[in-house]
Design a protein around this nucleic acid. Structure first.
Lengths: 187, 208
DNA sequence: ACCTTACTTTAAAAAGC
DNA sequence: GCTTTAAAAAGTAAGGT
């Protein structure tokens, strides 16, 4: 299982002058006609932040909570370096976690589409089966290869729980078959 | 009371007006697609349910009608792609697909998983293929499904490749290009599915 | 025929139209 | 509802060589 992306909101209790920031900080995108947020890209950790005049921000691209916290600290440090006044400490809230997983089995999607509740399987539109799980409340994109995408979780344990649960469910419904796998190279 | 009756009457008349307009659209698109009356009736039934549940609010009547037609085609096993249907509307495929998903989620309309064999019938009639070719193609697709080769793949592309092979085997050679065109997929897709089918199913292709 | 790039689907927040 | 951002899965598409 691998976390691929974390979306979080950061609250700074103060207003920001986005026009002033655009003038003083290099490599920033700001086009209020197109989108009200200012786009700031941090290279290390590689995340992208949308900064709003209310002092709220959205940070995307982090692959772990540690990375997310480090990124937020560096973003604020960068803003201060360009003499943007930042008071108080930021409040970080994880809004969505996107993860991928591999069950290492072959999944019979036709059978799963017939037996699972709350699913959608439309191969002319998308190759994966879309399953909306109630508890934890996440959405899984399940592929015949046994690989999947889990999204909508707010905590990491929800992802683990969802993967365990879908495996058991597919197993009970006999939608799974073993697949001889040439072992993959780890990086 | 009088007030309540008045409100209900107003809602009813707005539903009636919406339905009248939708039925015109349904008739127009249905005829352009040469759909049998049974499919148009089924689509009308689905659309009526959608209006009664208020699903058309904030959406164009046309795109919901198109989505209802697509759902009806699927239920009646009449193969039509979303592209074929949406080409006669101002809405694009993405918008019609969005409405279709909404119908699936909000109405209790059962739509079976699309079957590539339905596309064999469609492609076969457009290319005037013999029953023997279509029968062979259907057999290839059954085998492919058993082996698990079809999951996640576009049924139109699978059907196109199966027909290409079946035509060759029945001595009625058709080009990948003409098959791809009527199937609504690219030649590359037909070729990819074709290779996979002959390799995995160990199909022998008549020489040349 | 290959390769690269890009689009389809899912979730979630921000502020404004 | 739309706009913007990131990321994965697998299939399909389009353009270039």
């Amino acid at each position: 299982m691998n976390i691929e992306n974390i979306v979080a909101t950061v609250t700074l209790d103060q207003n920001l002058d986005l026009y002033a920031m655009e003038r003083s900080i290099p490599n920033i995108e700001y086009d209020p006609d197109q989108f009200p947020g200012l786009i700031f890209r941090l290279e290390q950790p590689k995340v992208t932040s949308l900064i709003f005049k209310s002092g709220k921000m959205v940070v995307t691209g982090a692959k772990s909570t540690d990375e997310l916290i480090k990124a937020v600290k560096r973003i604020i440090k960068t803003l201060r370096r360009y003499s943007i006044r930042i008071l108080g400490k930021p409040k970080i809230q994880i809004q969505n976690i996107v993860a991928s997983a591999n069950l290492h089995v072959h999944v019979n999607l036709d059978k799963a589409a017939f037996l699972l509740e709350n699913n959608m399987y439309e191969p002319e539109q998308f190759p994966g089966l879309i399953f909306r799980m109630d508890e934890p409340k996440v959405v899984l994109l399940i592929f015949s290869s046994g690989k999947m995408v889990i999204t909508g979780a707010k905590r990491e344990d929800e992802v683990y729980k969802a993967v365990r649960k879908i495996f058991e469910k597919l197993n009970e419904l006999e939608c799974i078959s073993a697949v001889e796998e040439e072992e993959e190279l780890e990086l | 009371r009088w007030r309540k009756w008045q409100i209900r009457a107003r809602i009813q008349s707005s539903i009636d007006r919406n339905l009248a307009q939708a039925m015109n659209e349904l008739e127009r698109i249905g005829n352009l697609l040469s759909l049998p009356k049974s499919v148009k009736d089924e689509a009308a039934l689905i659309y009526r349910k959608a209006v009664e549940k208020g699903l058309v609010r904030g959406r164009s009547i046309e795109s919901v009608v198109a989505a209802a037609i697509y759902a009806a085609c699927r239920r009646m096993k009449i193969a039509r792609t979303l592209d074929e249907i949406s080409q006669y509307t101002k809405a694009n495929r993405k918008e019609v697909a969005r409405c279709y998903r909404l119908l699936l989620r909000e109405l209790d309309v059962e739509v079976p998983v699309s079957d590539s064999k339905d596309y064999v019938t469609r492609i076969g009639s457009l290319l005037r293929l013999s029953g023997a070719v279509m029968k062979t193609a259907a057999e290839i697709l059954d085998k492919a499904k058993t082996v698990g080769l079809t999951a996640g793949k576009d049924p139109a592309g699978l059907a196109a490749a199966a027909i290409y092979i079946a035509a060759l085997q029945n001595d009625d050679r058709r080009t990948q290009k003409e098959i791809a065109q009527v199937a609504g997929v690219t030649e590359v897709t037909v070729r990819n599915r074709y290779k996979e089918l002959i390799n995995e199913l160990k199909i022998q292709i008549p020489t040349q």
